[in-house]
Amino acid sequence: MEDEKHLENFQNYVDAEKKIEPKDWMPEAYRKTLIRQISQHAHSEVVGMLPEANWITRAPSLRRKVILLAKVQDEAGHGLYLYSAAETLGADRQMLVEQLLDGTAKYSSIFNYPTVTWADMGAIGWLVDGAAIMNQVMLTRTSYGPYARAMVRICKEESFHQRQGYEAITALAQGSPEQKEMAQDALNRWWWPSLMMFGPTDDNSPNSQQSMKWKIKRKSNDELRQEFVDRTVGQAEAIGLTIPDPDLKWNEETGHYEFGEINWDEFYNVIKGNGPCNRERLKARNEAHDNGEWVREAANAYAKKKKSKAA
């Protein structure tokens, strides 16, 4: 049934800024792209819990501890909202999770970097969540209704994530010399991977165009990356930290910062599985899944018994 007429109607509908809903007709490629993108996004939230959860038991004050716990919990919630959105497209969560566990599905490479000091909690909130929010704000206007609504909910909750990160790294940047060094070191390690979060340059991002046409994506990778740099440089300066890029400079004419070349070899290498923590992250998810199997089964068995008793 995927004739020209349908496709044209679909495109007109999208162009009119109307939301596609689960039961509406949609091109098969649109559905597939969305399932892939939404589930990758969900996986990223879930895997993204691990590097931060790594510091929950070691948070340096009870206030920081509850903030971090609540933040990581939100990420679980966001993963859940996104799996829900993917399920409206006919995907099954268990199936999607299995793709994550067997390594066939991707998730954001940023979470394959290790959290080695407490300052990384600040850097992640500030930079990684900051970069993610750029993308997420854009996605509140994505053409698929359930995805857009999940993103609205997520963005509402995310606003505290970046603030808490910035606050945490500010405390360090304005603290003792050791703390300041810790903060700068975290910025040095997280800056470039954060820029990589926006994906390949527009010239090297062949799928982006179709996604833009269908209004799944509303801004290009490079546009979002530039916006992020423009916003973040001033935030670093405000707390006396230095962005680790000798080529960074303000361009009066364009009104944007120019920045140095991203190490794309590293980018593709981490995607291929050679990041510092790829194996650990997948191992942790697999262990959680395997160790939970008997629990999930028990609950099913109980529900079944209760049902047959009631019948």
Partner: peptide, 9 residues
């Protein structure tokens, strides 16, 4: 309601 833009910082 879709927000006009979620506050950044």
């Amino acid at each position: 309601e879709i927000p006009d833009g979620v506050k950044y910082l």
